[in-house]
Structures are given as C-alpha cells and as structure tokens.
Computed example of a mutant assay.
Amino acid sequence: MGETPDARPARVLIHDPTLRDGHHAVRHQLDTDQLRAYAVAANAAGVAVVEVGHGNGLGASSLQIGRARLSDATMVQVVREALTDSRLAVFMVPGWGTCEDLRGAVGHGADVVRIAAHCTEADITERHLGVARDLGAEAHGVLLMSHMASPEKLAEQCALLAGYGAQAVGIYDSAGHYLPADVTERIAAIVAAVDVPVIFHGHNNLGMAVANSTAAIEAGAQVIDATARGFGAGAGNTQLEVLVAVLERMGHSTGIDLRRLLSAADLAEERLMKAPPVIDSVSLVSGLAGVFSGFRKPVLATARREGIDPADLFFALGDRQVVAGQEDLIDDVAHQLKEM
C-alpha cells in the first residue's frame, strides 16, 4: 500500500472538465464553435487533460436530465481535432452510459476515461473500467457525492477501483460540502490505501473549492480537477486559473502557462457562459445540505410552483441523501413538505 508523502509532489496534473461539468450551467447546450474555441485555448495554455461531454457524461442526454445540443460523438470529435498536445477525456456513469458509449468515445479519440459511481458503489465500475483498459484508454475510477461516506469507506472503495484496473482513483465533492480538514482526512486515507495517483474534484458552494484542492494536494493528491471561471452548476467548480496561480505561489509545478490560461479563462467567460458562477443563497444552502448542485434549477422551479421555501426543500432532500438521477424525488419531497 502507498504511504502519505512527506513532501509536496514536484508536479500537479490539472484535469479540466470545463466542457463537461460546465455544461450543467447552460443546460448542455454548448455548440461546436464554443467547444472548439475553448479547447484550442486550453491546449495552447498547456492544460494536460481536457474533458468534454454532457454534464452527466456519456449516454446521459435525455428528457429526464436534459438533452444536449450535440451528440457525444460530435463533442468528442470536435474537441479531439482541436487538441494537439492536451489529452482528451470523457466521463461516464454506468447506467446512463454503456460499454458501447465507451467504445464510441475511445474510437473517436478519447485518451482518458473517467468511470464514476456513487461513493459506496464502486463495484458497478468493474466491467467498464476493464473495457476502457482493453480499448487502450487510461482508466480512472471516481466516487461521487463523497461526503456521504467516511474516510475509511472511501479508502476501501478506492482500493476496489484500483483493483478493478483504475490507473487513478479519487473523490468528487459533488455538493460542495467539504471543508479543508474533511478533504485532508479523506485524501490521506485514500493515498494510504492505493498505489495509483489520487484525484480530487471540488465544487465551490461554501467558497472552499480552491482551499479544498490545495488541502488535497498537501495530503498527497496528484490529479486536481478545475474549470475556467469555475464554470459549472450552481456555485461552480474549483476555479482553474485561480488554482494554478495559487499553486505557483505555493511552489507547485503544473506545466501550464498562466498568461495563456488567463486568456483561455477570459474566452470561456465571453463565449461559454452568460455570467460566471456565484455563491448565491441557493448555492450556499445546497452545499450546507449536501445536495448535488445540478438539482438547483429543478428545486427552484418546484419550490416556486408549490409555494415553499427552496431552502426547506434542499435540506429535506439532503436528509434523504438524494443523488444525481433522483430528480423525480423533488416533487415528492415538496408535496410532503406542504402536508407538514
């Protein structure tokens, strides 16, 4: 088993899901010109890995959680053509995506495949991690809504992912619920349990995404996710250009040209989003309640329709530990609140 390192890693690999996680903020409606423009800019800045797709990953475009403007194949092809140095990544949750979706994505040029599962359900990834490896892609295994599990449980689940062939493993703070001490404890436990690089993916509901990401690095994480301007659902993700600037101040190498990255972030704000994410009251409550940020819009719509406080609805959903894909429960919980 690996041991928590005593020294900072010489280099931090930045994984950029702006064109995938950011899709949540625009109802999955980015077009080919937008994808291409940002991919070219990120590639020029030296970003190691650029991820693209529907916000919920391969195969997720649907009436239930939103239809993407473009097909998975088109998104992968457009970004693949724009990347001359950066690697191309895709993301998939078994159940939304299938092995056939993986074959299509790798066939169109994906280099890295992220297979994701709820934080206590690593066993559902075994087949898909194996397929990704067989296809010649770099396979990652990641755990969503990780605040719902203890450090020990997360370490156990990440060890399973590594045992299934994942070449990097890690956790997503899908609800933006963590504080730095939470991250330190969890990442240290995972680093001690596996012999592959450890990933951290933060959200900014409590304004802690950059601090949480640096805590992850100090605890031994080697792969950190971040998006331009924090582009993502609700309060957004770890802000890429801020993170890289902070890491430079801390003495960490990322291989990224900060000046060119700032230009890429400016382009993202101008071309991809109506406005950068902010921590408003709803995002803050979502983080406190531990509810996935992608629930923001349906929660607000339901609360408005039913005449209830969205904060009450978020906390009730948090109590029920809802996860992405359970959006149909929002109406049920709202009706229960009205009857109380």
Rank of each mutant, 00 (worst) to 15 (best):
V191T: 12
D111R: 05
G104L: 14
A235D: 01
K338D: 07
I199T: 10
A166W: 01
F231I: 08
A245N: 10
A219G: 05
S61N: 05
S213N: 02
L58M: 08
D328N: 12
I256N: 00
G325Q: 03
A68I: 10
I190V: 12
A265Q: 02
A311W: 13
D309V: 14
L272K: 04
V291T: 07
A10R: 12
G2T: 02
G232K: 00
V282I: 15
V183K: 04
L129H: 00
M75K: 09
L129P: 01
D173I: 08
P197D: 08
H140R: 12
L154Q: 02
G318F: 10
V191H: 08
G109I: 07
I14F: 02
P94F: 10
Q157L: 04
V90N: 02
Q77W: 09
G136P: 04
H54R: 04
N212S: 13
N212W: 07
T125Y: 01
E248K: 11
V183G: 01
I14P: 00
G97C: 13
L240H: 09
F295L: 09
V299G: 00
A132D: 06
E306G: 00
G66V: 06
D280N: 09
P94C: 13
A139W: 00
E339C: 07
R80I: 01
V285Y: 10
T238G: 01
F315K: 12
P9C: 03
H128A: 03
A149I: 13
M273K: 05
G22D: 09
S253C: 13
V12R: 01
M75Q: 12
A10E: 15
M148V: 15
A324N: 11
K297E: 14
C119I: 06
A149M: 14
R320M: 15
V291C: 06
V282L: 13
A159V: 07
R260W: 07
V333H: 06
G59T: 08
M340A: 14
E138V: 11
M145S: 13
T98W: 14
K297N: 14
V50R: 02
S213Y: 09
H203N: 12
A68Y: 06
E138M: 12
S62T: 14
V223K: 02
D21Q: 10
S283M: 10
A168N: 00
L63K: 12
F200G: 05
S174H: 07
A192C: 07
S253F: 14
R320C: 12
V278C: 11
D331S: 15
L258D: 05
G2C: 03
A181K: 13
A192V: 03
L329R: 14
T74P: 04
T184N: 06
H140W: 13
S213F: 11
A216G: 00
A189Q: 08
A168C: 02
V76D: 08
M75T: 11
D123G: 11
D280K: 05
H24Q: 11
L206E: 10
A139F: 05
V78C: 04
V291G: 02
R260S: 05
Y172M: 10
D16Q: 08
V93N: 06
L135I: 14
V90R: 03
G176E: 04
L272Q: 07
A334D: 05
G66L: 10
L284F: 15
T18L: 06
V52N: 06
G163E: 03
G236H: 02
D280W: 09
D280T: 11
H147G: 06
A159M: 08
